[in-house]
C-alpha cells in the first residue's frame, strides 16, 4: 500500500516517485537485521578464509599473514588432494543419481495423490529431520556394524557376513539417507505444479507411457530435477559427519581433509584454499541452476 506523505492537490509523477521510494526504503529497513547477521557471520568469515588461503604456514604450525602467495593453491594440485577431490565428486555424483532415481517416482506419486494424502506423505518425508543428523548417522553405524541387524539378516539368509561399514558403500548409503528429502521436496514442488492433463494429451497424441515421461513430464519438471540435484550434490560434496562416522580411513573426503588441515596438520592456508575452491564450485553450481530457470526455490 502506498503511504500518503502529504496530501497533494493531484497526483504528479514526482509524488508517485516519492511514494515508491519511501516504500522501497521501508522494505530495506525490514530486511536490515538479516543483512547485518549474514554480513557478520557469513560474509566476514568467508573473507577471512580467503585472506588466510593466500597466507603462509610457518614452521611452528602458525600462520604468517605476511608474504602473500599462491602456495596453498599450488598444493591443491598434489595427487593426495586430487584423489580426495575426485573421490568426493564421484561419491557426491553417485549419491545425487541414486537420490534422483529413488525420489522421482516417489515425488510423482505424492504429487498425484489427493491433498490430504499428499500432506501426510510430505510429513513422513520430513520426519527424519525431527531427530539429530549426528544421531541418525550413529544409528546407521549400529545397523551396519559387525553384529548389527543387517549383518545378522544376511547371515540368516546364508549370504555370509556383510562388511559394509567403513566402506564407500556405507558413506553413499548414509548420504542418500540423509539428503533424499532434499531431492524429494523440490521434485514434488515441480511436478505438483505441472498440469497432468498434459500427460493425457501426449498419450492421446500417440506417445507411449515412457515417451510421455521423456517428452512432457521430465522437461517440465526440470527445474525440480536441477534444484534437487544441487541440493543433494552440494552438501554431499562437502559432507563431513557422514564420511567421518560411516566411512573408513581409506575414504577420506574433502570435508574431513579440510578439518585435518586446520586441526591436525595445522596448515590453515591449505585448509582455507580448499574451502574457498569448494565454495566457489558450489556457488557456480547454484548460479547455473538460477540461470537455467530456477523457478522452484
Amino acid at each position: 500500500m502506498t503511504q500518503v506523505l502529504s496530501h497533494p492537490e493531484e497526483v504528479t509523477p514526482e509524488f508517485e516517485k516519492d511514494a515508491a521510494r519511501a516504500q522501497s526504503r521501508r522494505g530495506f529497513l525490514m530486511a536490515l537485521p538479516t543483512f547485518v547477521y549474514l554480513g557478520l557471520f557469513f560474509v566476514l568469515p568467508f573473507l577471512i578464509v580467503i585472506v588466510y588461503s593466500f597466507a603462509t604456514r610457518n614452521r611452528f604450525g602458525g600462520t604468517d599473514l605476511s608474504g602473500w602467495n599462491f602456495e596453498a593453491y599450488r598444493k591443491l594440485g598434489d595427487s593426495v588432494v586430487r584423489d580426495i577431490l575426485f573421490r568426493s565428486i564421484w561419491l557426491a555424483l553417485i549419491t545425487t543419481i541414486i537420490c534422483l532415481v529413488l525420489a522421482y517416482p516417489f515425488a510423482y506419486f505424492i504429487a498425484t495423490r489427493r491433498p490430504a494424502v499428499r500432506n501426510l506423505m510430505l510429513v513422513f518425508v520430513m520426519i527424519p529431520f525431527w531427530s539429530n543428523f549426528l544421531v541418525r548417522n550413529y544409528a546407521w553405524r549400529v545397523l551396519l556394524g559387525n553384529d548389527g541387524p543387517v549383518s545378522q539378516l544376511s547371515e540368516v539368509l546364508g549370504l555370509g557376513e556383510t562388511r559394509v561399514l567403513f566402506t564407500p558403500v556405507a558413506v553413499v548409503l548414509g548420504l542418500v539417507y540423509g539428503f533424499l528429502p532434499f531431492m524429494i521436496l523440490p521434485l514434488y514442488a515441480a511436478i505438483e505444479r505441472i498440469d497432468l492433463r498434459l500427460m493425457e494429451a501426449s498419450r492421446d497424441l500417440y506417445a507411449s507411457g515412457w515417451q510421455s515421461f521423456r517428452r512432457v513430464l521430465l522437461p517440465l519438471s526440470m527445474p525440480g530435477v536441477i534444484a534437487g540435484s544441487i541440493l543433494v550434490f552440494v552438501p554431499s560434496l562437502g559432507a563431513y559427519v557422514t564420511p567421518e562416522i560411516l566411512g573408513g580411513a581409506k575414504t577420506t573426503l574433502l570435508g574431513s581433509y579440510i578439518v585435518t588441515q586446520f586441526l591436525t596438520a595445522r596448515n590453515w592456508p591449505v585448509g582455507a584454499s580448499l574451502s574457498f575452491v569448494l565454495m566457489a564450485v558450489m556457488l557456480a553450481a547454484t548460479l547455473v541452476y538460477f540461470r537455467k530457470g530456477g523457478r522452484t526455490l
Binding site: D195, R197, L198, E200, A201, S202, V216, P219, L220
Partner: peptide, 9 residues
C-alpha cells in the same frame, strides 16, 4: 481438450 492442454515447453 477443454483447457487445450498445449505443451508449454
Amino acid at each position: 481438450f477443454q483447457n487445450y492442454a498445449l505443451f508449454p515447453h
